[in-house]
């Protein structure tokens, strides 16, 4: 067991820290513990918040003491290590497929990203859609994914002056990170395209399209396909494509 740290975050908060780096193996441990706590714990645990490298557990200290909760967590983490060995362990994860219309009015910075990296626009799209990206965590705005695993070949610096308004569904690059804006918000990412599907819709029975621990696979679609999918989304008829990834 390579040592978890239990840290204090107020009388109702306990942070389980697995490391202090951005690392897929560390992150998968976070999500595994989050899942176990959701299944194994009683009513004393109110909510868990997974991030890059730790899990914040909100609990009721009048129902379960910090010491008891710490023991439960240590036991679960140990069991997880035993099951998975030193590696990330074996379990299935969802791949959520995200159609993206790249360039044009939807991706005003696609040309910049290409020029900056001495690539053609098509090469940027090919690299961006070549591999699934792990959703390390959600934050910044409801449903905003912090993704890992993008190729350095298409990395690009943030805008010097952030845009005041970025449309919901915009897909962008900042440094060697990629992500998408689920709601309209200000932002400094280089915008390369837009997805017609909704990553966050509070009116929907499943308001969030993906969760931390899932993977996102971007897929290039034409302007016409974008419009067709958009109409399906508006009619409530669109079903996102979700496949399974075997990890381990």
């Amino acid at each position: 067991m390579n040592g978890i740290k239990l840290l204090q975050a107020g009388e109702q908060g306990l942070v389980v820290e697995f490391g202090n780096i951005i690392d897929e193996v560390v992150n998968i441990k976070v999500h595994r513990l989050a899942k176990q706590l959701a299944q194994d714990s009683g009513s004393a645990i109110l909510e868990v918040v997974p991030t890059y490298r730790s899990l914040l557990v909100y609990f009721d200290p009048l129902e379960c003491s910090r010491r008891e909760l710490g023991e439960l967590i240590t036991r679960l983490a140990l069991a997880g290590e035993a099951a998975g060995g030193a590696s990330s362990g074996r379990d299935a994860a969802n791949i959520v497929h995200i159609p993206v219309c790249y360039g044009g009015e939807f991706g005003p910075d696609l040309d910049f990203v290409a020029t900056h990296n001495n690539l053609t626009v098509d090469q940027v799209i090919a690299i961006h859609t070549s591999t699934p990206y792990l959703v390390y965590m959600l934050g910044f705005t409801p449903g905003f994914p912090y993704l890992g695993g993008m190729s350095e070949q298409i990395a690009a610096p943030r805008l010097e002056k952030p845009r005041v308004k970025i449309a919901a569904g915009s897909v962008g690059i900042a440094g060697s990170q990629t992500g998408l804006y689920p709601v309209e918000s200000p932002g400094g990412w280089r915008i390369i395209g837009r997805t017609p599907i909704e990553a966050f819709n509070p009116e929907h029975p499943n308001p969030f399209l993906f969760a931390a621990g899932d993977y996102l696979q971007f897929k290039a679609v034409s302007r016409d396909e974008f419009g067709a999918i958009r109409r399906e989304v508006a009619a409530g008829a669109y079903r996102p494509e979700i496949t399974s990834l075997q990890r381990g």
């Binding site: 975050a9 942070v15 820290e17 730790s54 914040l56």
Partner: peptide, 9 residues
Amino acid sequence: VSDALPLGA
């Protein structure tokens, strides 16, 4: 490396 913000942090 970003982590969760508890109430009152």
